[in-house]
Design a protein around this nucleic acid. Structure first.
Length: 525
RNA sequence: GGGCCCGUAGCUCAGUGGUAGAGCAUCUGCCUUUUAAGCAGAGGGUCGGAGGUUCGAAACCUCCCGGGCUCACCA
């Protein structure tokens, strides 16, 4: 009925013909001896006829998907693509016989074949495989969106009719991967980056662990969770928004250095840097503080960058970014002073509010009770935009997190006094690494004082994020663990997707997630 | 959620009120070193959906569906 069906029908007809020839269009295996890249790299020198002559006797077996066919009567060329690249195949009826050649006539772009033959160079100079025989390994019955490549005289590659509809590319990633060169490279780089992060951590004795995705109480971050239900127990369960509280329990339990790559799930908006499920790596190190974490963070990122890009300098969307260590470290209040020329520490809370109003800086009135949150807000609104090169913004107000230890310069009694005065701001040993204006992670000298921990978590649970519905449940068992005693510890969370975006020069987070969340659709193919 | 933009053949796109188009892909024929192969011919569309305006709508209006960008939200 539709054109699509006619295209499929002609392929189904071909499939029937193939079966009539007594050929199994879906055989079980094929011995692969060579890869396209390897062959092209080996036979790079077009003038070396002697070498080519020698290799004529050497047989290769290669398998891949047909990406282009040029038939010329009783001889044909096609390009096949394997997991390393594309290579041209030359097939003559004289060489493969009439039966196989008639099979070849029934093949389409998208079919997968295995070829036995020898390497040669065509008149036009392209390294190709001269087929002695070939085998159909999979008949494709659904057409591919054809991409045509043209190599200009200057060696420039022009892509014609690129499969560019981003919606279809994300929904049918398998097509995107087959047809669009470069997509696969992004994901290969992604695994390289993850492997590099693991290598750096393993080098320092970190152990990979696994903690629950389904949690009865969520915590460790401020975000709305996805809620699901367990039938047998008849209880609500939450998809984790963070694994922080579990990893700390492991530190309590005696694992001194742990890390975990996890999918976190946050029921928030979707945009260029946010997907509802995203990958984070968190690591925790006993007996260290946030300075140790900064040093390790720099090393992890620089290593990953060199591993993936071959250099510690990259260009992201036209902006050069230099990951060389050490990175700039600046206190949040100094960053504000530098940008705004004001010293928030010597300003009254109301003066800060007035300053922000005068400068037309937006802030939620619900935070006006907290000088610390106002400072954090002022920082975000005025300073983030300048943080292109890797920068650690350190020492955040305590109201921004209940899980981080106050600066070491305070005494415990001092903290009690300061908490009573709304004009005093307690700062905590927290840093956020900024690159290209993005928060790439989060790190603390972890709070291990059980009395203060309980108090801060209770306060937060009460506050309920300024009247919002999604109050954070109080995790009694976590506090119990801290009461058992956690050694001095530092921990780091790193947003893997955003790091991969930077290192692959990807504009959207969807370009670094193989199957990003898409609205369901039923009628679209 | 707000604003702006997009949806026409399998793919990439033209088409601003008067009989739905191009290239590639597909089908038929020719072609034993081609390469965006070539030559000759053919088929293929509820123009995202529904309603409206009009003698007449792919185009104009309304609503809906899907998507993109952006702002807000997401410490």
């Amino acid at each position: 009925m539709t054109e699509q069906n006619e295209l499929i029908k002609s392929r189904l007809d071909a499939l029937e013909e193939i079966i009539k020839l007594g050929i199994n269009p879906y055989p079980h295996r094929f011995d692969v001896s060579s890869k396209a890249r390897e062959i092209l790299d080996t036979f790079r020198d077009p003038t070396d006829e002697k070498e080519l002559e020698e290799l004529r006797s050497k047989k290769v077996s290669i398998a891949g998907r047909i990406m282009a066919i040029r038939r010329m009567g009783k001889a044909s060329f096609c390009h096949i693509k394997d997991d390393t690249g594309k290579i041209q195949i030359y097939i003559r009826q004289n060489d493969v016989g009439e039966k196989l050649y008639s099979l070849f006539k029934l093949l389409d772009i998208g079919d997968i074949i295995g070829v036995n033959g020898f390497v040669f160079r065509t008149k036009m100079g392209e390294i190709s495989i001269h087929a002695d025989s070939f085998e159909l390994l999979c008949k494709s019955v659904r057409p591919l969106p054809i991409v045509k490549e043209e190599i200009t005289d200057t060696g420039e590659k022009i892509i014609h009719d690129a499969f560019a509809d981003v919606e279809l590319r994300y929904r049918q990633r398998y097509l995107d991967l087959v047809v669009n060169d470069g997509v696969k490279d992004v994901f290969l780089k992604r695994t390289k980056i993850i492997k590099s992060i693991k290598n750096t951590l393993e080098k320092y004795g970190f152990i990979e662990v696994e903690t629950p995705t389904l949690q009865t109480i969520y915590g460790g971050a401020n975000a709305r969770p996805f809620i699901t239900h367990h039938n047998a127990l008849d209880i609500p369960l939450y998809l984790r928004i963070s694994n922080e509280l579990f990893l700390k329990r492991l530190i309590v339990g005696g694992f001194n250095r742990v890390y975990e790559f996890v999918k976190d799930f946050r029921n928030e908006g979707i945009d260029r840097t946010h997907n509802p499920e995203f990958t984070q790596v968190e690591w925790y190190m006993a007996y260290g503080d946030y300075y140790d974490s900064m040093n390790l963070f720099e090393e992890v990122i620089e290593n990953a960058c060199i591993e993936a890009c071959g250099s510690n300098k990259i260009t992201y969307q036209g902006t050069e970014i230099n990951f060389s260590r050490p990175w700039r470290r600046i206190k949040m209040t100094d960053a504000i002073a530098e940008k705004n020329g004001i010293d928030v520490l010597n300003m009254k809370k109301d003066d800060i509010i007035k300053y922000m109003k005068d400068k037309h800086i937006d802030f939620d009135p619900a935070i006006s009770h907290s000088k610390g949150l106002l400072i954090a807000n002022l920082f975000e609104e005025t300073c983030e935009e300048d943080l292109i090169q890797p920068t650690f913004v350190i020492d955040h107000p305590i109201d921004t997190t209940p899980l981080c230890k106050p600066l070491r310069e305070y005494s415990m009694t001092q903290i009690e006094e300061m908490k009573k005065d709304p004009e005093q701001v307690i700062f905590v040993e927290r840093f956020e690494p900024y690159i290209n204006k993005w928060e790439l992670g989060n790190s603390y000298t972890e709070l291990n004082d059980p009395i203060l921990q309980r108090k801060l978590l209770e306060e937060q649970a009460e506050r309920g994020r300024g009247g919002e519905e999604d109050t954070h449940p109080f995790d009694e068992d976590f506090v119990r663990a801290i009461e058992v005693g956690m050694p001095p510890t530092t921990g780091v969370g790193l947003g893997v997707d955003r790091l991969v975006m930077l290192l692959t020069d990807s504009y959207s987070i969807r370009d670094v997630i193989l199957f990003p969340l898409m609205k369901p659709v039923d009628s679209k193919i």
